[in-house]
């Protein structure tokens, strides 16, 4: 087994990434997971959050996805995301604003009518921030 694996990240709108990578880290439905070359075949749904890929040579790239699916095959890792962005294209101020907005709505929530929608909004905004802050830290 080699030290790299082919990885493709696509969203409904475009192909974001395609190339050989050393490691893929994504936030799966039941927790973050790291995929290294030689991983067993796996399929999982993704939560909103950052997807990090370590490219051949150690360079890192971060993408933000709003959910989707991750498939691992012996020779290819595929991320099918609903919508995805390169994390450095995310506007941090806008993400903060969205999070504050969602939290405000959360606080003012009456009944449970919109609970799911607002919870989703909040999760997305938080995830987007996580992606931005990860880049900052580096």
């Amino acid at each position: 087994m080699g030290t790299t694996v082919q990885c493709d990240i696509v969203s409904c709108e475009e192909q974001l990434f395609s190339g050989s990578v050393e490691l893929v880290i994504a936030s799966g439905e039941s927790g973050d997971l790291g995929i290294a070359p030689g991983h067993a075949a796996l399929m999982t749904s993704l939560k909103p959050g950052p997807v990090r890929v370590v490219k051949e040579g150690g360079e890192e790239e971060v993408f933000y996805v709003t959910g989707g699916y991750l498939e691992v095959q012996p020779n290819v890792v595929t991320v099918l995301s609903d919508t995805a962005q390169r994390a450095d294209h995310i506007d941090e101020a806008a993400a903060l604003e969205a999070k504050a907005e969602a939290e405000r709505e959360f606080a003012n929530l009456k009944g449970d009518m919109d609970y799911d929608r607002v919870a989703l909004q909040l999760a997305e905004a938080t995830a987007r921030l996580r992606a931005v802050q990860y880049i900052r830290r580096k």
Binding site: C12, E29, A40, L42, M43, T44, L80
Partner: peptide
Amino acid sequence: HWDYIYEPDAKALLDGLLTRFIES
């Protein structure tokens, strides 16, 4: 013979994925 490891569980995951596939 091989199968995926499914997370969280196969039914919910496949439902979502296959519906998405048809739609796409």
